[in-house]
Amino acid sequence: MKKVLLLSALLALSSFGLSAKEWTEIRMASEGAYPPFNETGSDGALKGFDIDIGNALCTEMKAKCTWVKQEWDGMIPALIARKFDAIVASMSITEERKAKVDFTNKYYASPVVLIAKTGSPLRPELASLKGRKVAVQRGTVSDNFATKYWAGKGVEIVRYAKQDEAYLDLKSGRVDATFADYWEAYGGFLTKPEGSGYSIAGDQYFGKNAEERAVIGEGIGIAVRKKDQDLKAQLNKALAALRTSGKYDEIRKKYFPMDIYGN
């Protein structure tokens, strides 16, 4: 008994020792091609909602942050390979990704939507999309969803490295619709002059059952390596502080007129 007590005391001590590590320098990564969340400014520097949130978190944690620009489809491998410490790139929290990395609590909610010509009868349902070409960005939640529920069942999924390219091909008529993250479509297309004449076909889609919701995800979080539990806790604490201090809403208002955090 004594031994067990001693052992657990030791374990508690050692885990305390680990969690006591304060992160004072954090390398954050973003893609820079996902406006208004993250984009590349004319000077080449990253900017957008993700970047503002990341910087606010760093101020809250009194940490020094540097930003790394990273292509989307190499994002998680690069995090694991220690090219940086946290992904603040509007990444959806999904079961599949959780197998590789850990996520903080969400910092905003994120449904998926089908974008097509205004007035199009298409809906984000298998029956409606049969025989159609649907564009998705490779490696995104919408790609995973479309691959799982539509591909090989009569819907042709066309994959792009960047969502911008999917919009180009939607406009030129090479595809019938694009299935994308709602916020991405909102900021990157629908509210821009290029997106006039296009709108959401159907409604915001959150998944109709637990299985689908698991693919679409619980919202957008910051990804960290599984072993960096201390960083995750630190970020979660800072995130909660931003929410209560009103700093979060201050940043949000710069980009969106409506609530984006959800419940």
Partner: peptide, 11 residues
């Protein structure tokens, strides 16, 4: 290969 990679995060 890119599709497989992005599906499994297995470069």
């Amino acid at each position: 290969a890119r599709n497989v990679y992005s599906r499994h995060y297995a470069p």
